[in-house]
Amino acid sequence: MKRLSRGPFVAFLVVAWIAAVLVGLAVGGTPLAPREVLAALAGSGDDTTRGIVLSLRLPRVALGALVGGVLAVAGAALQALVRNPLADPYLLGLSGGSGLGAVLAIVVGVESAWALPGAAFAGALAAIVIVYRLAIVGGGALDSRILLLAGVVVGAFAGALVSGVLAVAESTGARSAMLWLMGGLGGVGWAGVAALAVYAAPALAVIAREARSLDLLALGEEPAGHLGADVARTKRRVYLAASLLTAAAVAASGLIGFVGLAVPHAVRMLRGHDHRGLLPSAFVLGGAFLMVADAGARGMFAPLELPVGVLTALVGVPLFAVLLRRSGRKAAA
């Protein structure tokens, strides 16, 4: 597949992102025309529309932009770290850990609004610590292959525990835990958006600082070292930053799959593997993708709402398959 040059690609990102914001603000139980959305954003129009756009949908759209961006950056960084294009932020045991945390919180009957996200975050942190400890080999170095395996086994263990707990728990709590885990951007509000933004900024900066080292790591650890990367430091920092970003995204919105796998791939195919360009582009495109997916989840069966994680997979998989086919044909040509 031919890569886009920088100008058209940046224009594509800007247009896609703005369009996604407008779609996110327009679609929902009360569909709005683009003109009404723009009027509300400008502070004019009727009170009801302004309330819907500014108070209900804008924080949700902002959360989508942030969570989608964070998941895409974490995915891109982890793919380079473990030198595996199949790596996904949830592969490293985080989904299992956070799921277990959330389910346990419901089963023991913690009631506060922050209980579920808090417990999911704690579960994800526990998974991060265990996976990290398992993947530390002789001399304190992080072994990427063991990291991947440790993530899978910790995830499987936590998944088994979740299934066990759900099997013996009373059904309403179990159902609400499952629904929450399936992902959604509703009910967070500006405080949640701000908390995630403040939390994510330093972790994103850490990953951005390692962008060139991630380019080099794609060649292999030893060549990366020869070309100036501090491989042990890069692996440690990127794993922790990407995991903490993912844990925060899970706490904010449950498990939203596929963004962290597909979006970095799409950017790699469209623009190449230079992580200095890839990471910010993945952030923008991941956000746009999730904003549109969330609009679809709200609009398709309104007033019912689909879990957005269902829609990201339903939309993302065919899109991804098309991209794969095109790049496969190119490689075979």
Partner: peptide, 9 residues
């Protein structure tokens, strides 16, 4: 070095 294979094109 002896061996090297990029993970991405």
């Amino acid at each position: 070095g002896q061996r090297e294979e990029p993970a991405f094109p």
